[in-house]
Write a protein that binds this DNA or RNA. Sequence first.
DNA 1: GAGTTTGAAACT
DNA 2: CAGTTTCAAACTC
Length: 806
Amino acid sequence: MDVVSPELNSILPDEIMDTEAIVIEEELPADATVPLAQVELPTPVPMETELPEIVNLSSAGTPMQRTQALTTSTSTDSSHCSMGSGTQLLLTASVAPRPATPAVSKSTSPGVSGGLQRLTTPFAIQGNHQIILNKVSATASSDEKSPSPHVLKQEGQKLVVTGLSKSGQPIVLALPHTNPKPGSAQATGDAKAQTQQFKVVTIGGRPDLKPVVGVQAVSTASQLLGTTQQSTLQTQQLKTVQIAKKTQASSSGPMITKFIITKPLNSKGVSGQTSVSPVITGRVIPQNTPGTPPRTISISETSAVQTVSSSKVPISPLKSPSKLTVVSVASQSPSSPQKSVALPINVALGQQILAVQQSTATSPAKGVSNSSTPQTMKPVQTVAVGGVGTPQFKTIFPLTTPPNVQQIQVPGSRFHYVRLVTATTGSGVTATASTSTNSPAIQPAAKPMVVNTAAMRMSVPIVPAQSMKQVVPKPLTSSAPQVATSSQTQQRLIMPATPLPQIQPNLTNLPPGTVLAPAPGAGNVGYAVLPAQYVTQLPQSTFVTLASSSSSFSTPTGIQTQARLSLNGLSTSDSSSRPRKPCNCTKSQCLKLYCDCFANGEFCNNCNCTNCFNNLEHETERLKAIKACLDRNPEAFKPKIGKGKEGESDRRHSKGCNCKRSGCLKNYCECYEAKIMCSSICKCVGCKNFEESPERKTLMHLADAAEVRVQQQTAAKTKLSSQISDLLTRTMPAITSGGGKLPYTFVTKEVAEATCDCLMEQAEQAELTDQPHAVAERMILEEFGRCLMRIISSAGQAKADCSINC
DNA sequence: GAGTTTGAAACT
DNA sequence: CAGTTTCAAACTC
C-alpha cells in the first residue's frame, strides 16, 4: 500500500473512487448492543441552486438536535432530509472546541460552507450530490447532554463519506472526532480509545449520471459499549462499511451515487478520553433523477447483532482505535447506469479492518446490494504494531474475498489507491484528505470521533464532484465485476492514510507490493497506493473498484501520472495480469525509470534488485522519486505506446525511438519491443522497422514460426497429458475396484526399456519418412501415450488376475 | 554466467 | 536544448 503525501494527494487525479454503493458494516462484540436508529430522507427536494448545499451536523448543537438530525428522522418523515442534485450534505463532527452556544456552521470551512446547513433541520440533497456528514465537535456541555444513545459523541474518530456528484460536487459523510469527554474517558479507562481512526471511502460518481443521494445513518448508542467491551473492541471490533449500489424500491427515482467516505484527521483537542462512540443515524434518500437509474449506497453495520437494510447507513464510531472496518463499495458502470456493482474491499488499519465490496449487476433490475449479507472476514495479513503510549494497530488486509470482489485500478494505472484520512494525533484536527477543496469545510472544527457504522447503509447517487477535486467517477463495467478488464473499467481506490508514525508501522506488514509511506510533507493526510501487483497477487482480496474514464484521468498534475497505461494500448488490468519480469537494478535503488517495476508503477516483488527502495519500507523515498520523475516529465508514467483508435496500426510510440545501431530491429528499440513500426517522430538512424522492410519481415516470419512451434509443442504435450489423464481416469476404477492400487512396481526396467524402444522406433520412423520436427515430436509423444496405456492396462490386468488367484 | 552492446533516462 | 553520463535490459559468446 502506498501512502501518498498530501502534496501528491493534491495532484492526484480527481477520479479516486467510483462506486455505486457503499455499505458500511461494523461488527461489534456480540455483547455490544447496537441500537439502530434509522433516519430516512424520503422526500427529494429539487435543488434551486447549483452551489452545493451543505448540511452540517455539528455537535455544537444540542445533542438532541444532532440526534434528531441524524437518527430521529424516520422513513416516515420525509421532510428531514431530501437531497437533490447540487446539494451538499455535510455531517461534520469537528474537534475544535466551541463556545457554549452551539454554532453549527462553525465547523464548515469557508470554501465549502457556502451552502452549509445544519443537519438538525430537515435538509434536501439534490443534484450535485455532495453529501458531507461532518460531526462538529461539541462543547463539553453538549456532550453531557447526550444521554440519548442516538446522540453523536466524540470518539476521536471521524468518518467522512463523500461522494462526487454528477456535477463534480463531493458527497461527504464526515464523522469527525468530537471533544473528548472526561467522564466518558474515565468510563473507558482506555487511553487507546483516543487513537484516531479514519475510514475514508471515496467514490467517484459518473459524470453523466445525475446524483440521487439517499443516506440513512443509524446511530448506535456508545453508551452501550461498556468499559469491559472496550478492550474487546480494540482488538476485535469489526467495522464493516459497505457501499453497495442497489435499487431502492422506495426511491422516488433512479439515482446515481458516488461516495467518498473520509475519516478526517484530528490531531488536536482530543485527548484519548473519549469513551463513548457517537452513533449517527442518517439516511439520504435517493433523489429522482430523470434518466438515471436508481442507485443506493448503503452503509450497514454487520455487527454480530444484525444487518441493516440496504437503505440504511449506520455509522458508528468505535471507541477504541482498534477496530475492524469493512467497507463495501459498489459502483455503477456508465454504460449501464442501472447496473449495480459491489466491490468488496477489506482494509484494516491499525486494528481496523476496512472492507469494501462492490457488486455489479448487469441490469438495473439486477441491482443487488450485498450489504444485507454479512461478510465473512478472512484476514489475509495481520500486522500488529505496538507502541508505547500509542494504540496498537492491527492491520488485516484484505479480510474477505467476496465473490463479487473487484480490483481497484486506476485507469491506465497500475496503482491502486486507497485514500485514508487519519488524525495526526489522538485528537486531531480534522483533515479531509479527499480534497483540498472540501477539507477546509470539514477540517476547521471537525474532531476525530469514533463512528459507529453498525447497521448503517447509505443510498447515495454517485456523481462526479468537480469542486471536491476528488474523483472523476468512471463507469464500471458491470459485466466484469471481478476484475477490470479494460481501460474503461480501470478504477482507482484512494484512501487517505494516517501519517506515517501511526499508519506506516501498521502497514509495514502488508504484502509486498503494497506501499505504506507517509507523505514526505508530513501532512496528516496520506494516500495508500495499492499496487496492482498486490491486487493481482491477491485476486480474492477485497478491493474497491473505482471506475474512471481515461479522459477524467487528466488531472492537472500529480500522481495520476503515476498510473501508467499498459503498453501496446492494453488496459492496465491486462498488463498487470501479465507476469512481469523481475528487475535487476543495482544502482538505481529501483527508484528511477531505469527500473521497469518503478516505471510501471509497481513495487518490486520477487526481483533480483539490490538495495531496492521500491517497496513499502522506503515509501518516503519512493514518493520523492515519483515526484521527481513527474517533475522531470509529467508524463513519465504514462504509456509510451499510444493506443490507436483503430487497430494496432495506429499505435505508435509517444516520443519515438532514438536507435542508432540496432536498426530498430532489436528489443533495444522500444518501438520494436512494442511490436510497432517506427514512425515519423522517431529519431532513429538506419531504421529497418518499417512496413516494407525486408529485414523486418524476415524477423517477423522467424518469430512467427518460432511461436507456432512453441504453440504446437505445448498443444501436443497438453493433449498427451489429457489423454493420459483420461486413461488413468478410466482405467483406475477398474484397477482399483478391488480396493488395491495399481502396482507401480509393474513399471520395471524392462518395461521402461521397451517403452524407450517404442519411442525410438517412432523417432526413426519419422526421420525415415522425412517428417517435420513437430510431427516427429507428435509421433513420439503419441507413441509414449500408447505405451502408457499398455502399461496401465497390463497393470490393471495383473491386478485383476492377482485378485482372482489370490 | 560473464561480458558486451544498446538506447532510454538522468544529469550537466 | 544538446551533450554526456548513468543505468539496466538486451544481446552475444
